[in-house]
Amino acid sequence: MSALSRFLNLFRSGDLEKEFDEELAFHLAQRVTANVRSGMSEQEAEVAALEQFGSVAQIKQEMWEARMMNVRFAAPLGVGIVAILCWLALVGVWRSPTPDLPERPTPIYAVKRRVPPPPPPPPPTWDEFVAKVRSYE
């Protein structure tokens, strides 16, 4: 069974449970039929089939464990896939394709020229200062 199938099994537990039930029910039905053929009554045949089979819950548990025995390989695969997807999303590799546009000259706003900051205003003269300050009035 491929690693991918094992990983997908994690998400179809309901289906697996149903399959286990169906498989075990088939076996028990076959055993009951065989027991009846060997001379048992229907009721005796059912009781004998169940006794011979053992605990259905226990068997199903063991079937689950058998199915999940390789999940230790599948789980890291899943984690790895998620990690790679996250990484792709972060670096922006996995983005929607841009349409093919005709080649255009580089727009002006794409070129930034370094403009020196304007010089500070000259300090006011004494007369200007006195004219602004009204607290002496």
């Binding site: 069974m1 286990f20 498989e23 076996h27 076959q30 089979f53 053992g54 068997i59 063991e62 058998a66």
Partner: peptide, 26 residues
């Protein structure tokens, strides 16, 4: 064969890739 042991063993062998299983009609 202990019937209770058979099915876990079959599923284990299926996981190992030693057997293949498919649903059919008896």
């Amino acid at each position: 064969v202990e019937e209770g042991s058979l099915y876990p063993a079959l599923h284990r062998m299926n996981e190992e890739g030693w057997v293949l299983s498919e649903w059919g009609t008896s």
